[in-house]
């Protein structure tokens, strides 16, 4: 059961931004609501005002242009999965999209919301905070139930894993995210959008409380070979245990450059410089693929011991 809140439905970006507070906690942006409503029900967030952005027409639409494909933040995952051009030119992304959650959720969940969803860490969701501690200040994850927690980028206090499945594919394609706030708009490479928080007052992405995500731009991928792979325990409606998205620029069978992104392994979608370097210049074979995989987890520091 959630607490009472005000509800506003602006019809323009500018109005929406004015309705958002400058500090996190008092207001939240509502789009598909598939994550936010659950967070409110669990009392993890308790905003006093919800700013519904679903009526803002500028945030919809999919536009194809010279710089690639521009996707409004309000497109639902289902709309994206159905988009012919996206399926033709960005097959790895299309692949990632069809496996997200369930049909019902894909029908309402938006692209912007998917990228800004909060971590699935069960300590966070139970109210122990994003950097979970008990009342005495003891780190709960390191000695706790961390089987689904980060194995890379986990040397700081953040131990959760970045939750978006499609972020990995988008980053592999070199996507950028467009953000608008009271100081105008800015564009950030999606892999720089995510960051590892060091303190409780930071979020896990580069967005201020009074900014909204407006658009995702994916550069043309005509010369790119890409694939997406995820491992999860259940056949359907389950979060992945691990995700890998790979985009290669090729010259014949030789790799010119590689972008390798692993999901659900670190507090951010994790680009593996080690694996990318290993592949650059090499010819793809089962052996090089295996070595790239090993390079990707070479520096992993799993927090968990073997279980029975």
């Amino acid at each position: 059961m959630m607490r009472a809140f005000d509800y506003v439905s602006p019809s323009t970006k500018v109005e929406a931004i004015h309705l958002l507070e400058t500090r996190w906690g008092k207001t939240e942006v509502l789009a598909g609501g598939t994550d936010l409503v659950a967070l409110m029900k669990d009392d993890v967030v308790a905003p006093m005002r919800l700013v519904n952005i679903k009526d803002i027409k500028e945030l919809k639409g999919i536009v194809s242009g010279r710089e690639g494909l521009g996707i409004g933040a309000l497109n639902t995952l289902d709309e994206l999965a159905d988009n012919e051009e996206l399926r033709r030119n960005y097959p790895a992304l299309a692949d990632a999209l069809v496996d997200v959650a369930s049909t019902q959720i894909r029908n309402v969940a938006t692209l912007g919301g998917n990228l800004c969803q909060r971590p699935r860490c069960w300590y966070f969701r139970k109210g122990f905070g994003l950097l979970p501690k008990d009342e005495a200040g003891k780190d709960l994850v390191s000695e706790g139930e961390n089987r689904y927690h980060a194995i890379l980028g986990n040397d700081g206090p953040a131990k959760f894993v970045s939750p978006s499945t499609i972020a990995s594919a988008l980053i592999a394609y070199g996507a950028k995210i467009r953000i608008e706030g009271s100081n105008g708009h800015r564009e950030v490479p999606l892999n720089e959008f995510y960051r590892i928080p060091k303190t409780d007052i930071e979020r896990e992405y580069d967005l201020r409380a009074n900014e909204i995500v407006t658009e995702i731009v994916i550069p043309s991928a005509q010369d790119v070979k890409a694939a997406h792979y995820e491992v999860r325990q259940k056949e359907a409606f389950d979060w992945p245990l691990a995700v890998a998205a790979v985009a290669l620029k090729m010259n014949g069978s030789r790799v010119l450059s590689a972008r390798i992104v692993m999901g659900h392994v670190a507090p951010v979608p994790w680009r593996s410089a080690e694996a990318e370097q290993l592949l650059a210049g090499s010819i793809i074979s089962e052996e090089t693929a295996r070595r790239a995989g090993e390079a990707g987890v070479k520096n992993a520091t799993p927090p968990f011991a073997q279980c029975l």
């Binding site: 008990d134 709960l140 000695e143 706790g144 139930e145």
Partner: peptide, 9 residues
């Protein structure tokens, strides 16, 4: 169960 907090996760 979380050993530290004693809660079901």
């Amino acid at each position: 169960m979380d050993l530290t907090s004693g809660r079901m996760l």
